[in-house]
């Protein structure tokens, strides 16, 4: 029963990583760049939703919506101002810019909200008004799954399903796939590549806002650096699953979450990160393109 409860907390953590990883992987797939500022968009999402319910008196869900709107706009702005001028530049220049944007966001948050951590109220309170835990109790109460965890896991599955539908069925989604394969050919079809990239950042950033709210609901201390570590782990998850692949990000996220939870429970809390990254290294040695990544040989 203990194992099951660790497994569920791992899946739950993994669901958050998966949502973040989906943002990384979509942007990488289409713009062929690693947006290292993605983790910090998560943090901004956390702060905006915090402002929503703590200062503006909004409902938690409305705050989430507000965070999604703000992050979407932020994502489009970041892409338009920082990355778009570098479309022809080397990937190293883009990477360094992304790291710069990451610091810019962290320090802006420090300036606006200060260094003192905010105590974040979970989207669904962990304890009900009567003092009993807000959780689903199974096996005569031996296993308890908080409603927050259920919502998180459901959100991840729904997002994954929606994205799969979007990229395989809609015109814009197909255009995104076309851009990710061959930008020049996509342009010759009449696809506006710049607008498509912008849309991808918008979607990724809206997902980051959701991830921010979920993340802060589990780890209630909100600081300007809140997004960086989960950002890096989710990036790991995206690479693990095969960067550029949507199901890969989902699988990678879940596995990283589960491995992390298991390592914390059965090996050592301090070593959890080492275990996670060791697994990543081993997987990449065996499958360089990641679990579900396609190794595309280049025809010469």
């Amino acid at each position: 029963m203990e194992f099951l409860s660790y497994l569920i907390s791992g899946i739950c953590l993994g669901s958050v990583y998966a949502i973040i990883a989906l943002g990384y992987t979509m942007v990488y797939g289409i713009a062929k760049m690693l947006n290292f500022a993605h983790g910090d968009v998560i943090m901004i999402g956390g702060y905006i939703s915090f402002c929503g319910f703590a200062y503006m008196g909004l409902n938690g869900w409305v705050s989430l919506l507000l965070a999604m709107v703000v992050c979407t706009v932020l994502g489009i702005l970041i892409e338009g101002l920082a990355y778009k001028p570098l479309r022809q530049a080397t990937s190293l220049a883009v990477l360094i810019t992304a790291i710069g944007v990451s610091y810019l966001l962290q320090n802006s948050a420090l300036l606006i909200w200060g260094a003192t951590p905010k105590v974040y109220a979970p989207l669904i309170p962990l304890v009900g008004p009567d003092g009993a835990p807000n959780a689903l109790r199974l096996f005569d109460g031996q296993l308890s799954i908080s409603y927050m965890s259920i919502v998180t896991m459901a959100a991840c599955v729904i997002i994954m399903a929606l994205l799969t539908w979007f990229t395989s069925r809609t015109k814009l989604g197909k255009a995104m796939r076309a851009c990710s394969e061959n930008k020049a050919a996509a342009q010759l079809m009449g696809i506006n590549v710049n607008r498509t990239i912008s849309m991808t950042f918008a979607i990724g950033s809206a997902l980051a806002a959701i991830a921010g709210v979920l993340l802060c609901s589990f780890n209630p201390t909100l600081m300007p650096t809140t997004g960086s570590m989960p950002g890096i782990r989710a990036f790991t998850a995206a690479v693990f699953g095969g960067i550029g692949s949507i199901p890969g990000a989902f699988l990678g996220g879940l596995l990283i979450g589960i491995i992390e939870a298991m390592a914390k429970a059965y090996i050592s809390t301090q070593l959890a990160n080492s275990v996670v990254f060791s697994v990543l290294i081993i997987v990449l040695l065996v499958r360089p393109a990641g679990l579900l990544g396609k190794y595309v040989p280049e025809k010469v």
Binding site: K171, K174, A175, R177, A178, E181, N182, A184, A185, A186, L188, M189, G190, I191, K294, V296
Partner: peptide
């Protein structure tokens, strides 16, 4: 040729009719 290698034949044609 530059067809979209990871998309189906029908999807490639749909992209041709994008506009």
């Amino acid at each position: 040729r530059a067809v979209f290698l990871q998309m189906t034949v029908a999807e490639n044609l749909e992209m041709g009719a994008y506009t």
